[in-house]
Design a protein around this nucleic acid. Structure first.
Lengths: 275, 275
DNA sequence: CGCCGACTTGAGTACAATCAATACATGTGG
DNA sequence: CCACATGTATTGATTGTACTCAAGTCGGCG
């Protein structure tokens, strides 16, 4: 196992972990040998978070691409605010009243469902541009909770207003259908994974899925760092953390992946897909 | 193991298996000791299938309860046709063009997602009043296939027309959101099951879920017959059919359930929930 | 009656879980 | 700056659950 390259410590107002250095806020300072892709900011500079969708570089990821000027202005008038969520804190919890949908702007989240006896299942990891909160529409309260994996920002989309926007705009309407249906399809393929795959196959398809999502955002799918722990990956894949770790070691031994802790380099994606 | 009571054989145009006799089409002929609940018909007599939602006794299950007269008439003008699907046949297949949503009217279905290598995962079983096809909204083609577990009927809800109805009616709109979100929540809890539960717990929660759904339709949740095979249950629960069978035997031995093949009698629901 | 498919049951096996020890990274306080 | 504490990750040894393979039963049907 190689030691990840040491980075110059940026001047910051509080203690900065290596993990934080890897964040996109500092990506311009990072040496070119390390491509940080698991955190993003839609605009160039740190702290610069426009609340207008019309000016957001992530719009193509989370909204329809063919919106008219009118629709964009309407959208701007609905999505007025963002919210910061610190690492480990909840954006919403189970049984919280559902009021808004959210779109991840920077950072990342996990969503978990809890059983009364304490067992928990991670149902997804969300990266920038991905929606959160669609589960709440059903009962008016959330049926899962969303926890930030790192200091993160979300756009708040008040559902009542978004709903009436959708009544005016067929494209927005379609998009909301699309988002919900995508979530249904995503969960189906997860069920397939949990129901039919071996530990090795689960981890492989997890890594390939993440890689594809990063690539879709214009980042390398071959190199990224995970914001979630082995245990969280395990909870997602229906495995124990030791098993996840063993599978990483196996992939390393077989030359498919170079894992340096949370820093992942996919060496042979084809072979990973064949597992 | 008791033998299920023999029923008088109804005159029918083709060979009728015991299973078919248990169907609701003949429920009026069945002795009162057997309550058949896993098949339904919304109206009293066989063959009598009104195409109008306004006259359908299942409306309360699959549509909002507070529709106005106007909305009901609009709904009637959209949901004009039903379709019969024979046991084992597909209502739609993966990659079929998505045109309609469906609501199960009589009989039952399973939905499955297939992996290229042949592995398949059952993602759900649908009984009367339950929707089918919500997965298709996302890509315009279906991402799973729906197979009839017995001779069945569905109401066809052409999506384009339903969509425009939803634009006129806020209640219908909300209901479509509700249906999609419910599916998301349902799948989340399935993921929890697949990810964290033992074989015994999975079968227990499967039986209790079915029971609850039957009860919600006004039927006994304690006694019903399964239309799916042990293998199909296994595909749903992420288990092999032998394991499903063993768990049924264990429940029988422990006095929780009396399984007579496909005929299920839940003896101790509390204990089943504690498993 | 005999065949066939669905189901049950048993014996042996394999994969992932558990238990346990150690290594490593991160953050704290001396 | 280093020693130490804490949480995270890796690795090994052992166990247990569910899978595989196989035999046998049951019920339906030609």
């Amino acid at each position: 196992m190689q030691i990840p390259p040491r980075l110059p410590k940026p001047r910051a107002h509080r203690a900065v972990k290596l993990e934080t250095i890897m964040n996109a806020e500092f990506v311009c300072e990072a040496p070119s040998s390390v491509t940080s892709v698991s955190s993003f900011t839609p605009m160039a500079g740190p702290g610069c978070l426009p609340t207008r969708c019309s000016a957001c570089s992530l719009r193509a990821v989370c909204m329809p691409t063919d919106l008219s000027g009118i629709e964009l202005r309407q959208l701007d008038s609905v999505v007025l605010t963002t919210r910061h969520v610190r690492r480990g804190e909840a954006l919403f919890r189970t049984h919280d009243v559902f009021q808004s949908l959210y779109a991840v702007r920077t950072g990342s989240f996990k969503t978990i469902v809890m059983h009364r006896d304490g067992r928990e299942q991670v149902t997804g990891f969300q990266i920038p541009g991905e929606p959160l909160g669609l589960d709440g529409v059903c009962w008016g309260t959330h049926s899962c909770e969303a926890i930030a994996l790192e200091d993160s920002t979300v756009c708040i989309i008040p559902f009542a207003q978004f709903e009436s926007l959708c009544r005016d705009s067929r494209r927005m309407q379609r998009h909301l259908y699309y988002l919900m249906s995508s979530e249904i399809v995503r969960e189906s393929s997860l069920m397939m994974m949990l129901g039919t795959m071996t530990a090795e196959q689960r981890l492989a398809s997890f890594l390939l899925d993440l890689a594809a999502r990063f690539r879709a955002r214009g980042y390398s799918g071959a190199q990224f760092n995970l914001k979630m722990s082995r245990e969280e990956i395990g909870c997602y894949l229906g495995l124990k953390l030791e098993t996840v770790s063993r599978m990483f070691s196996r992939f390393h031994r077989d030359g498919l992946v170079e894992p340096n802790g949370k820093q992942i380099h996919i060496v042979d994606a084809q072979a990973l897909a064949r597992v």
